[in-house]
Design a protein around this nucleic acid. Structure first.
Lengths: 344, 344
DNA sequence: AAAAGATTTTAGATCGATCTAAATGCGCAT
DNA sequence: ATGCGCATTTAGATCGATCTAAAATCTTTT
């Protein structure tokens, strides 16, 4: 029983309406679950939809209703475990709301971000969750406002004029520094990598504040490679320092894993000879031995927060900008030891 | 200069056409880069588009052209590093082709897969790249054919009636077994987890074949938990065996990381006391010490292969089904030692 | 200059759903 | 039986792009 010729087999709402002996507008009210339709009529139309295998055409609805039920998600990296967990949290919330995620990788480049943002606009996304590429200017977010495009910044804060879901990076740095100081460490390094962005600045200044609050110097900041496999070689930056640190706080768990491997290669025993703290507490770090002490940021929860903000923005476009800042939690495990027995 | 009232600020192709003194159809031909338009006319129309900030409406185009320029990607897990790398490869190829990825997580459940597949159809995706949930039947893929929905299976093979991009799992198992046997190991275990699917069967049978080809028993298969943090506890399954193995091949690198940690906890030295091989060679395993010997499957490349197949299918819908099977490569590092000095 | 052929542009219909106000049907009261 | 009020259904326009064949314009040939 073809309703259309073989080249186009799509069952439309008009087909459904004809079979159910109602108008297209009634059939449309049925699929939108409008209370204005009688229950008999509704049942009849729904039965016909099932029989004919009707599939809603979101594209057609979108043209008239000016709503695509899609959300753009732009991240700077797809393979870093942190972003994988963030994306997981975002997708779960968006899915729960009955929308779909259109995904793009900016590669942490503003030019690529422009390209994918334009593509999102062409696809008429209802809103965007953006982890801004390094170097993104506040004017960039202002343009989204001009476009009437709902937007949530996540993890990297560019502007107070848009919603933001992030982490209390400074608070997390304080927790790490305070803990190491409580173990008697005075020479504490901070290992960083990646591009300069708000999350970077917050961690740097958080480290500085925390160290100074204990009357300690905050200048021992080493820069390591971005690639996990190359970070191990940077362990000697710590060991060959004129005044070697007794502990290191890592910008993220990728650095913690990499430095841990490098210190192992140099015969240094973490958790006795040397203390090390990660940041983010991603799942992948669970396999590290000794067990990693890490500042937990719960990336999946941050993703959920971002999605929550966007969904809220879609319901109330004129709501004033809001921030959800996730508090960190230090998970003490076995990668740190008191400084007195940790002397190198 | 609002061209519409404030409630709807969208610049349409009709606006562009009026400003450029051409018809809508001509303006449409310009944005589609049709060779049928004169260069003067083209330049004029393009200039007007820039001035007015015209943004293409993909949804409108889709309604008439029956093409959405979107590709559905359904994976069973978003946080496993393997799938993160696979997704990265897919997104890169799809982006290169000027399409966008609509992402969904099936949670490895057929019922969820049904829901997200339906949603993909409503959104009118041009095609789907599907890593089938465990328990997916061949009839499931047959339905995609009935829907005229281009589909590529990736990693888990359900049916010969659809394109498939995967790995030569059996070949990889042979490489691992051959290598351990070349080191003198005879008692080799195989550590598995996760749901039963084609990739699972291929690895099991590949292990069996490889072991039997060396006249060895293939019954030492241990099942470990799915969560990375819980796998370590399974190390004693190896150590407390009536005839303890001297080596283990891990179903994937997640298991390798987890068992490595568990063996460390038991005081077993990998790469001297005991030999261990991973599978997939994901980036995250680069931090392991001793350095992990792993069978490389290049997940990002598999993702690219899957996308390549789908793009090819979009160009030639009637092409016969094709398979791209990625050959594995054993990356020998330091997690294995000869059996004679590896006696437990 | 006129005709023929090639190139470029156009008019009107179409895609499948939603919107909006009008029409219709039903139940109740007089 | 008629009128009123409410519930339900409907007709026609709309959304913004593409499709398709016809019309218009330009170039070349006779």
């Amino acid at each position: 029983m073809p309703l259309r010729d073989q080249k186009k087999s799509r069952v439309t709402l008009l087909d459904v309406a004809r079979h159910a002996n109602v108008s297209r507008a009634t059939a449309s009210l049925v699929i939108r679950k409008s209370p204005l339709v009688g229950s008999e009529t509704r049942a009849r139309v729904e039965e016909v939809m099932r029989e004919l295998g009707y599939v809603y055409n979101m594209g057609a609805a979108r043209l008239r209703a000016e709503r695509s039920h899609t959300v753009g998600v732009i991240v700077p990296n797809l393979t870093n475990p942190f972003f994988a967990e963030l994306l997981s949290g975002i997708e779960a919330m968006i899915d729960d709301a009955g929308l779909v995620v259109i995904l793009a990788n900016s590669g942490d480049l503003v030019e690529r971000q422009d390209v994918v943002m334009q593509r999102m606009r062409e696809h008429g996304v209802d809103g965007v969750i953006l982890c801004p590429a390094a170097g993104t200017e506040p004017t960039y977010l202002r343009r989204a406002t001009e476009w009437n495009l709902p937007l949530v910044q996540v993890l990297r804060h560019i502007s107070d004029e848009a919603d933001y879901a992030g982490v209390d990076y400074a608070g997390g740095m304080h927790q790490a520094v305070d803990y190491l100081v409580s173990l008697g460490h005075h020479r504490i390094a901070f290992a960083v990598h990646g591009p300069i962005h708000s999350a970077y600045h917050e961690r740097i200044s958080g480290f500085g504040e925390a160290m100074r609050s204990h009357g300690l110097g905050a200048d021992m900041i080493i820069r390591v490679p971005n690639q996990l496999g190359e970070i191990a070689n940077s362990a000697n930056l710590l060991l060959n320092h004129s005044e070697p640190p007794t502990a290191v706080i890592c910008f993220n768990d990728v650095i913690a894993l990499g430095l841990s491997a490098g210190l192992y290669d140099c015969g240094v025993k973490i958790g006795s000879d040397f203390s090390l703290i990660g940041f983010d507490d991603v799942t992948d770090a669970e396999a590290m031995r000794p067990r990693l002490t890490s500042v937990s940021t719960a990336p999946a929860t941050i993703g959920e927060n971002a999605a929550r903000l966007l969904l809220s923005r879609l319901r109330d476009p004129l709501r004033s900008p809001e921030k959800i800042v996730q508090q960190t939690q230090l998970h003490v495990r076995q990668s740190c030891a008191p400084a007195m027995i940790a002397a190198v």
